[in-house]
Each structure stands twice: as structure tokens, then as C-alpha cells.
């Protein structure tokens, strides 16, 4: 009870603090958040953090194991790859590519998808049907296959891979947004906004959209990781980032033939992908809980 009276008299905390207050309830999310921050830090300051240039080859130290196994040394803490490049430096530098892929893909896919979904939710029936059938067609393709086709048309490069993945992920946002919009549009507060004279843009972006954001944020976080995974897969298939770019998927592809001889060359890029994707998914869950006012305690 004492806490309540304090809250009544003191000034209301800021929005950011309030958000953090609810976010930290979820331990997994906070854990994911810390990893994500470390990941973002690597992405931002990778070139200054790494011990060596990620493309520098140490011809005398090819396929050197990590420091804790026999034959390892502190000079190359996570070992070296078949060309004698330092694994740790390459992983740190690779974070930048993956982060970049995630941010760009989610931004393109989400902004486009939300816009189309909102339009579709408010559009007359015929336009809505056309939009949704197009999205169904895109969804009917296996996503990686479609991305592969698109990359084959556009030419293999990281940029084209990002565009392709964004197009493949877009329909999920469209459907999610449309479904939420249709559900929200029925509610009285939307009618109430119309009665006070809210125009269509205001109705779409100020009244309805904020109430549809919770699932979209979760989708955003999840597709951030999907984008990283897909970019890695495209890289692995040789259709994404091209060697010698230290992109994680490309690194995996290059190291494929050494799986049996040098486990660390494949394991570390794989682990990096796994940990990043897991952390982002955990964070996405916590984000939803913290952003949904219905889940807040009063």
C-alpha cells in the first residue's frame, strides 16, 4: 500500500523508464537484450575490436585450433580458417553484415508490409482481395526458393539478397497488419474517432495502427532473426555475400569441406548465428509484453 501512495504523489516516471520497468520483468528478454547489445556493439565497432584485419592471411598458421585445444595459441583465440585468417576477427567483423541485413530487411519488409496491410484493411473489398491474393501467391512459394530465384535474377550480392529476403518476408507483415486492422476497426473507439471527425489518414495511423503494433513488433523481432538466417543460407549457397566477405553464412560455406578435420571452422559461425537469433527472439517476446498496455499492471 505504501508504494501506491508514493506513486500517487510523486511525478509520473518517463515513458522510457516505464518501458524498462515492464521489460525487465522478463529475465530471458533482458538476457537476450544484453546479447543483442553486445552484437550491436560488435556491429558498430567491429573493425576496432578485432585483433587482425578479417581478410589478413597468416600462411604459417592455417587451420590452427582454438586456444583451449592442443596446438592452439593466444595469438588466435578461436583458431584460424583454411587460409590462415583469424576466426575471432572474422566473426566480429561478420556481426556487422548480419546486423545490417537484419535492420535493412526488417525496415523494408515492415514498412512496406504495414503500409500495404493498413491499406488492405481499410480498402474496399475488391482492392483488398487483389492485394491479399498477390500476398497469397508470394506466400505459396517456399521462401528460400523464392529468394534464390530473385537473387538469380538480380545477381548474387549481399544487397540483392537483402532485397529478395525483404520481398519474401513482406506478406507476413501484410497479413498480420490486415488481420489486426480488421479486428480493431470493428471496435467502438474507432467509431468514436469517426464521430469526432477523424479523417482516413488519422484513423489509419493514429487511431488503429498503434493498437495493431504488438504482434507486428514480435513479427519484426522474429523476422530480424529470420533475415539473418536466410541471408546466411543464401551466403551458404553462394548467392549472398561473396568471399572473402566475413559473412557468417558465407564462412560456413567456405568451411564445409573441413567439417571433419577442423570442427571450429564450422562451429563458431554456426554458434554465432544461433546465439544471435535466439537472443533476438527472446528479446522480441519481452518487447511484446512490455509494449502491450493490456498486460501492464495498474
Amino acid at each position: 500500500m505504501g508504494e501506491v501512495s508514493i506513486a500517487e504523489t510523486s511525478q509520473r516516471p518517463g515513458r522510457l523508464w516505464e518501458f524498462w520497468y515492464y521489460f525487465r520483468e522478463n529475465r530471458g528478454a533482458v538476457f537476450g537484450f544484453y546479447i543483442f547489445v553486445a552484437f550491436a556493439f560488435c556491429a558498430a565497432f567491429g573493425p576496432w575490436l578485432a585483433l587482425y584485419d578479417p581478410t589478413e592471411q597468416f600462411r604459417n598458421n592455417t587451420l590452427q585450433p582454438p586456444v583451449w585445444s592442443e596446438g592452439g595459441s593466444w595469438a588466435f583465440p578461436l583458431g584460424t580458417d583454411p587460409l590462415g585468417r583469424d576466426m575471432l576477427s572474422r566473426l566480429v567483423a561478420g556481426a556487422r553484415y548480419s546486423f545490417f541485413v537484419g535492420v535493412v530487411v526488417v525496415t523494408i519488409a515492415a514498412s512496406g508490409g504495414i503500409l500495404i496491410g493498413l491499406l488492405s484493411g481499410f480498402a474496399p473489398k475488391w482492392l483488398d482481395s487483389i492485394i491479399m491474393r498477390i500476398m497469397d501467391i508470394i506466400l505459396a512459394f517456399p521462401s528460400l526458393l523464392l529468394a534464390l530465384v530473385l537473387v538469380a535474377i538480380l545477381g548474387p550480392s549481399l544487397t540483392n539478397a537483402m532485397v529478395a529476403i525483404a520481398i519474401v518476408l513482406q506478406p507476413h507483415y501484410v497479413r498480420l497488419t490486415r488481420a489486426s486492422v480488421l479486428a480493431e476497426r470493428q471496435k467502438d473507439y474507432v467509431t468514436s474517432a469517426r464521430v469526432v471527425g477523424a479523417g482516413l489518414p488519422r484513423l489509419m495511423f493514429i487511431t488503429v495502427l498503434p493498437n495493431c503494433l504488438a504482434p507486428i513488433i514480435v513479427q519484426g523481432a522474429l523476422s530480424f532473426s529470420t533475415a539473418i538466417l536466410d541471408a546466411a543460407a543464401l551466403g551458404f549457397l553462394g548467392m549472398g555475400a561473396q568471399p572473402p566477405t566475413p559473412e557468417w553464412g558465407t564462412m560456413l560455406a567456405e568451411a564445409r569441406e573441413f567439417i571433419l578435420r577442423a570442427w571450429w571452422v564450422v562451429t563458431f559461425p554456426g554458434l554465432a548465428i544461433l546465439v544471435t537469433v535466439l537472443a533476438i527472439n527472446l528479446m522480441g517476446d519481452g518487447l511484446r509484453d512490455a509494449l502491450d498496455p493490456k498486460l501492464k499492471r495498474s
Binding site: 471496435k187 467502438d188 473507439y189 467509431t191 468514436s192 487511431t207 498503434p210 493498437n211
Partner: peptide, 9 residues
């Protein structure tokens, strides 16, 4: 319905 007529956000 007072639960649906106010914008929850």
C-alpha cells in the same frame, strides 16, 4: 461498451 469505446493506446 465502455471497454471498447476508449482507445487502449
Amino acid at each position: 461498451d465502455p471497454y471498447g469505446s476508449l482507445n487502449p493506446r
